[in-house]
Simulated scan of single mutants.
Amino acid sequence: MRIAQEEIFGPIVCVMKFDSEEEAISIANGTVFRLATSIWTRDIARAHRVAHRLDCGITWINDHHRIDPASPWGGFKMSGIGRENGIPAYEEYTQIKSIIVNMSDNPFDWFEDDGQPKRYS
Rank of each mutant, 00 (worst) to 15 (best):
V15I: 15
I27P: 08
Y90I: 15
E6K: 12
R66S: 09
Q5I: 01
E21H: 03
F76P: 00
S104Y: 06
R53Y: 01
P107H: 10
R53C: 04
M16D: 11
R2D: 12
Q95K: 14
K77L: 03
D114P: 00
M16K: 14
N85F: 04
D19L: 13
G82I: 02
F18Q: 09
G80N: 08
F108W: 06
S79F: 00
Y90F: 14
G115Q: 04
G30Q: 05
G74R: 01
V32D: 14
F108A: 09
E21L: 05
T94R: 07
A51T: 03
D63V: 02
R119V: 07
I3V: 13
G30W: 03
H52Y: 04
I39Y: 00
M103A: 13
P69D: 05
M78Q: 13
R53H: 05
W60Y: 00
R46M: 10
I39G: 01
N102E: 09
S20K: 07
W110G: 15
V13S: 11
M16W: 03
T31H: 02
L54M: 08
R66V: 07
Y120A: 11
F111P: 05
N102P: 09
T37S: 13
D113N: 13
G57A: 02
K118P: 05
K17P: 14
E23Q: 12
E23F: 03
L54D: 00
P107N: 10
A36P: 06
I100C: 11
I58K: 02
V101P: 05
Q95P: 10
W60Q: 00
S71P: 06
W110I: 14
I25C: 07
S98N: 03
P72I: 06
S38K: 08
A89L: 04
S20D: 06
I81Q: 03
A47W: 04
G10M: 10
S26A: 15
P72V: 09
E7G: 12
N106K: 15
Q116I: 10
E23K: 11
P72M: 12
H48V: 01
E21R: 10
I87K: 15
D105W: 12
P107K: 12
P69K: 02
Q95E: 14
I61L: 04
